[in-house]
Nucleic acid binder design. Structure first.
Lengths: 92, 92
DNA sequence: TCTTATACCGGTATTAGTATCACGGACATG
DNA sequence: CATGTCCGTGATACTAATACCGGTATAAGA
C-alpha cells in the first residue's frame, strides 16, 4: 500500500469538520457559499457531509474566507482529542 | 473536464506556499518537522518544492502546528497579490 | 396540482496528493 | 579507505479530492 487509506478517525474528523462548516454556513445556500468560495456545490456538499474528509488546504481556505471563519479555529475545533472537556455543541 | 487541472496561478501559489513553509522550518531538518507533523518527509519535500501545490488541509494544519505558524497567516501570505483593489470575495 | 428551488445521493471521469522504493551526496566513524 | 547513517531527491503505485450528470425528495409558490 502506497497511499494510506483514510482511517476511521480521519473520517470522523472529516464529519466534524463538515458539521462545523455547515453550522458556519447558517441559512445561506450551498450554491451561494460554493460560488463565493470558487468551488462546486457538489464539492461543498461532500465536504459538509463528510464524504470528502480531507479536502485541499486552499479549498478550505476559500470556504473559510467565504464563511468568514478562522482557519486556526476550524483546524482546532475538528480535532477529536481536543474536546475532552467541552462536550457541548458550542465547543467551537 | 471533470477535475479542473491546476492552473499556473495555483502552481505559483503552491511554490510560494512551499517557500513559506521552508522558511518557517528554518534550520530544522525535513525529517524532524515531518515526523513532528505526522507526515512523510517526502510529502513535506514535495510541498516545500511546490510539487504538491494544493496539499490536504489537515496536512497543512499539522505542519503549521509543528512549525508553530498560523494557518490564517499562511493562507494569506501565499496569495501572490490579486487583492490590491476589489478583493473580499476571493478569486472566483 | 404543477412548477421551481434547494439539498441529497449514486455513479463516473480525471487529476492530484501521499507513501514506498531506490539512488546519490555529505558526514562521521571504523 | 570502507562503511553506515542521515538527508534530500526522482520514480512509481495507489487512494482520494474535485467536477459533472442523472435521479430523488421535500418545501414554497403560482
Amino acid at each position: 500500500m502506497v497511499r494510506t487509506p483514510l482511517t476511521p478517525w480521519e473520517r470522523q474528523r472529516g464529519e466534524r469538520f463538515g458539521a462545523l462548516l455547515r453550522r458556519a454556513r447558517g441559512d445561506r445556500s450551498m450554491v451561494e457559499v460554493a460560488a463565493a468560495a470558487g468551488v462546486s456545490a457538489e464539492t461543498l456538499r461532500k465536504i459538509e457531509t463528510g464524504r470528502a474528509p480531507t479536502p485541499a488546504f486552499f479549498t478550505v481556505a476559500a470556504l473559510a474566507a467565504a464563511l468568514d471563519v478562522s482557519l486556526d479555529e476550524l483546524a482546532f475545533a475538528c480535532v477529536p482529542e481536543a474536546d475532552a472537556t467541552a462536550d457541548g455543541a458550542l465547543s467551537a
